[in-house]
């Protein structure tokens, strides 16, 4: 699934990375606990989260994730978006709640990816 499709499915605003919406995403992780995200290895993944601090970006960066979706209408502070931009990560913001956002993407064919304890 392309990042642009994620943005349109979730009716999301693009906060940075407008030029990279054609990038392909292969799996997703919906999580507010960063160590749970870090336990999850998958290529070209998107992180869906309700947290808005710099560690969200650094966590995604450590895992080579390509996109972060902030749910529940949260808008991360400017510094957080700048950090993502520097790390080459696309940032989207949607008003959908976590459960709904994940459900919509899953239903549209974006799988969860690997098993955590693989």
């Amino acid at each position: 699934m392309k990042i642009s499709e994620i943005a349109s499915l979730l009716n999301a605003e693009v906060l940075c990375g407008n030029g990279e919406l054609d990038r392909e995403v292969k799996s997703a992780c919906g999580c507010d606990m960063m160590s749970d995200v870090l336990a999850f290895v998958k290529e070209q993944a998107v992180l869906i989260t309700g947290l808005c601090n710099p560690q969200v970006v650094r966590t995604a960066q450590m895992m080579d994730m390509v996109c972060i979706v902030f749910v529940r209408g949260k808008r991360p502070p400017k510094e957080v978006v700048e950090l993502a931009e520097k790390a080459d990560i696309v940032v989207l913001a949607t008003n959908e709640r976590m459960y709904v956002a994940c459900g919509m993407l899953y239903q549209s064919g974006l799988s969860g990816g690997g098993v955590v304890n693989g």
Binding site: M33, A39, T49, N53, Q55, V56
Partner: peptide, 15 residues
């Protein structure tokens, strides 16, 4: 509330 405290850090480091 900052996203840490799942008790997964040390297990991840080992893994």
């Amino acid at each position: 509330s900052l996203g840490f405290g799942a008790g997964m850090g040390l297990p991840n480091m080992k893994k």
